[in-house]
Write a protein that binds this DNA or RNA. Structure first.
Lengths: 214, 214
DNA sequence: GTCTATACTTCGATAGAC
DNA sequence: GTCTATCGAAGTATAGAC
């Protein structure tokens, strides 16, 4: 549905629009979603306040634009991790990105009360989780085993939960045993992930290292 | 510290004050923390708007009062779980309380940008985690084993993370393998928690069932 | 696409009568 | 403790000239 109710103004791709999305993202990260107001986002972007509502009909539309940009970037990084030489480590690194933690938290809170953002977040989360599952599937297959209990999706849930927990603990200043858990993760990555390039301790050699740089 | 900077007005215990805290909590859960405004919280509580700033110098003070009430209730429930007949199950149930999920999420977002709330949340989280560790310690001791790797605190982190992950997944509509994980949890509770009252499958009998009703 | 100007609403917080 | 009344600031969104 291209023009639902108010075809008053279209909004193509433009320099200003990008600047507004950037400004909004910065505000969310630095001060929380409540800081994203017409005037403040315009000031941060260095444009006239009226332009905000020219490019985005409502503030919620701006939120959606910010979310989509971050979501697409994350999905791309996750896809690269899945296809990379060390899927598990790649997934771990993507999910441990500290910058995303605050942003995710804000959108999670937003989604609780804004239908549009909620459904967008749900769709994104499902795709994100699916990619994680693919990464895990690739590693499991390389080891020549079959997961029964827990199943592959369940194990994915458990593993993908860990970085999020560490991130949330970090957000509230809980650092107890963080180091130990990180060391444990490192140990398991060494043991179960596909072997690093140049690592002689491979127990299976037919993985194709189609790595792409960043 | 009874009168820190602005001794303009004191605020004792009163019916109105409680009503305001209740109203604010309801607003946070239903519509997010941004819905807590002077006028709206007064309307929800059925009192005059000016009373909000009589009882709470700022809106942030009101947020803190709401948080403290919930935090103290949670700590009490967690303490009861620790002392109860089945510590692991008790902890699991306290942490899986669906009502708290939204509230926690809101305060987590708030804490990202409000110093006072951040430090309050940090202190609370540490105490909460400590109680979880005590529960786990009690069960581990009952089994007569010693945890070395992962250590007790690390295992606590891992275990206490699971219900939070499930809650967050639930918040974004991710229900994949939720049932399987829940069943897995149930299985482990049956196996490792202290035996339920009247359960003949005890492998150790010197636990004192000092349960307290709620 | 971008600007000025503005309509309308709601905000936090306070003063002062009762 | 509770009320009426209000200040000044900030919010969303739009109209219309350029």
């Amino acid at each position: 549905m291209p023009a639902p109710t108010k075809p008053r103004r279209g909004a193509p791709e433009s320099k200003t629009r990008i600047a507004l999305v950037n400004a909004a993202m910065k505000l969310i990260v630095d001060e929380g979603y409540a800081a994203v107001t017409t005037r403040r986002v315009a000031a941060e972007a260095g444009v006239n306040p009226a332009l905000v509502h020219y490019h985005f009909r409502t503030i919620d539309d701006l939120f959606l634009a910010v979310f989509r940009r971050g979501a697409e970037a994350n999905l791309a990084r996750m896809q690269a991790a899945v296809d990379g030489p060390q899927p598990l480590r790649g997934v771990w690194e993507v999910m441990s990105e500290p910058r995303d933690t605050g942003l995710t938290l804000e959108f999670l809170a937003l989604a609780n009360h804004r239908k549009a953002i909620r459904s967008e977040l749900a769709a994104y989360s499902a795709r994100f989780r699916e990619l994680q599952e693919q990464a895990l599937a690739r590693v499991v297959q390389a080891h020549g085993v079959t997961l029964d209990k827990p199943s592959l999706p369940a194990l994915t849930l458990l593993l993908s939960g860990l970085p999020r927990i560490l991130a949330m603990d970090d957000a509230v200043g809980l650092h107890r045993s963080r180091g130990e858990v990180l060391a444990l993760v490192e140990e398991y990555l060494e043991r179960y992930d596909l072997p690093a390039v140049g690592d002689p301790s491979a127990d299976d050699g037919d993985a194709e290292p189609g790595h792409q740089a960043d």
